[in-house]
Amino acid sequence: MNEFVVALGWFGLFAPVALGAIGSAWGCALAGSAAIGAMLDSDGGYGRFIGVSLMPSSQVIYGIVIMFSLQQTTVDAANGAALFGIGTLAGLTMLFTGIRQGEVLASAIHASKAKPEIFGISLAPAAVLEGFSVFALVFALVLAGSIPA
């Protein structure tokens, strides 16, 4: 039983990075596809399309920060469950927000191509999703401090 909890602990420790990387990759691919398509139909402003398409890459960075905050000198039965719970749920948050951020960014790029003046405001939904990722990051850091060593 202890070995299983230890295994879960290691799973939880790396989950924020792995799931965050998947979310970032997926989100960047969605938004990047939109940016590439938009560049075909635009005479300028390529940089801003590519720039916003990279926004979902923050999820993997948050995942790395969470992993380091969860890192313990040893992973054992006392802290395995806590690492699993915090790490896995934080990782799922990064995965989901990364994908959804990519989708709303694709929509924002598409819409702002037809109506350039809405470019800034069209990024608001993506910024809100970024905020949710930051919530998960901050409270994972807070809880990491109370995990028994």
Binding site: L30, S33, A34, G37, D41, H110, K113
Partner: peptide, 17 residues
């Protein structure tokens, strides 16, 4: 490129009518 990404790129490459 997967199907969903292909359609995102295609739709974004078409000008607003």
């Amino acid at each position: 490129m997967s199907n969903s990404h292909q359609y995102i790129a295609l739709i974004c490459s078409l000008p607003h009518l």
